[in-house]
């Protein structure tokens, strides 16, 4: 068994949170530069200029890219040959979040109970998804998720007969109805298959992929391209002011499902598509 210490997980999560909130990932930045060149609407071009300028200011001044520094979503892949010593993984993740949000002057955006709605004042807890994998490493992916875009996400249990056309209609409808609310140009994660919660998780996970990467299955890769083209025909454009650059990227993830079902989840991310990862 390989030992990974609680303190090392805390430090890693903290560093990932600090970095993700102030520095736009290079793939997203480059996609925004491309979108600025391709956008046909003059107002949309100005919006993209402002977004690029914002990324420069945030990086230089170590300021959050967006005041909504989000609810932190963490995917942890734990090798089966790893033993975590000194505390629980979930507590280490929350401690890393707590330290980063205090030291980074980030906004505390989490309420402890969705009905009582009292702020926890340290942005914890995170939403932690753990999976067991082969090996003796711990892979941490950290994605602070803003709720302007999260609120515009959608899930539907389609019928198998709805097929690919049903999926296309549902994704386009979600993006059109979201309009300017999720801060376009957006990145879209689509989860297809599994059960209700599996589809949602696939959609969330899809958002962590690198912009420009295509799914290894050719028919899924083709669907990604077709869906991206369709959502960019909605006319929503940057900030919903109209334009050709509604989405920077669209990823699809699939999973086996039941003979009677076709679950589809659409998770939307804003242009401040924050994520970072590290392997311990």
């Amino acid at each position: 068994m390989r030992v990974i210490r609680y303190e090392d997980i805390v430090a890693q999560v903290k560093e990932l949170c600090l970095d993700a909130n102030c520095t736009l990932p290079m793939d997203v930045f480059e996609a925004l530069v491309e979108a600025q060149k391709k956008e046909e609407s003059p107002l949309g071009q100005n919006v993209l200029d402002a977004i690029l300028e914002n990324a420069k200011i945030a990086k230089e001044k170590k300021m959050p890219l967006c005041q909504d520094t989000g609810l932190v979503v963490v995917f942890a892949e734990v090798g089966q040959d790893v033993r975590i010593e000194g505390g629980l993984l979930s507590e280490a993740v929350d401690e890393g979040v707590r330290q980063a949000y205090q030291e980074g002057y980030f906004r505390m955006s989490v309420v402890g109970d969705p009905l009582e709605r009292v702020n926890t004042k340290d942005n914890t807890p995170a939403v932690l998804h753990v999976s067991l994998v082969a090996g003796d490493k711990l892979r941490l992916q950290v994605a602070p998720k803003g709720f302007g875009s999260e609120n515009m996400s959608a899930l539907k249990m389609l019928k198998p007969a709805d097929g690919v056309q049903g999926i296309k209609d549902f994704v386009v409808k979600a993006v059109s109805e979201a309009g300017g609310n999720p801060c376009p140009p957006i990145i879209i994660g689509v989860g297809i298959g599994g059960t209700m919660e599996k589809a949602a998780l696939l959609a969330k996970r899809a958002l962590l992929r690198e912009v420009g990467s295509r799914h290894p299955k050719p028919h899924v890769a083709r669907l990604e391209e077709e869906l991206l083209e369709l959502v960019n025909k909605t006319g929503v454009g940057p900030q919903g002011f109209g334009g050709t650059q509604t989405a920077l990227e669209l990823f699809v993830e699939v999973y086996p499902t039941h003979i009677a079902g076709l679950p589809v989840a659409v998770n939307i991310n804003c242009h401040v598509a924050r994520h970072g990862e590290a392997v311990l």
């Binding site: 046909e40 609407s41 454009g237």
Partner: peptide, 16 residues
């Protein structure tokens, strides 16, 4: 929002 989207919206095939 309405004016901009109407201006840049493109027709979609296959009933989308």
């Amino acid at each position: 929002y309405e004016q901009g989207v109407a201006k840049y919206r493109q027709p979609m095939a296959e009933g989308s």
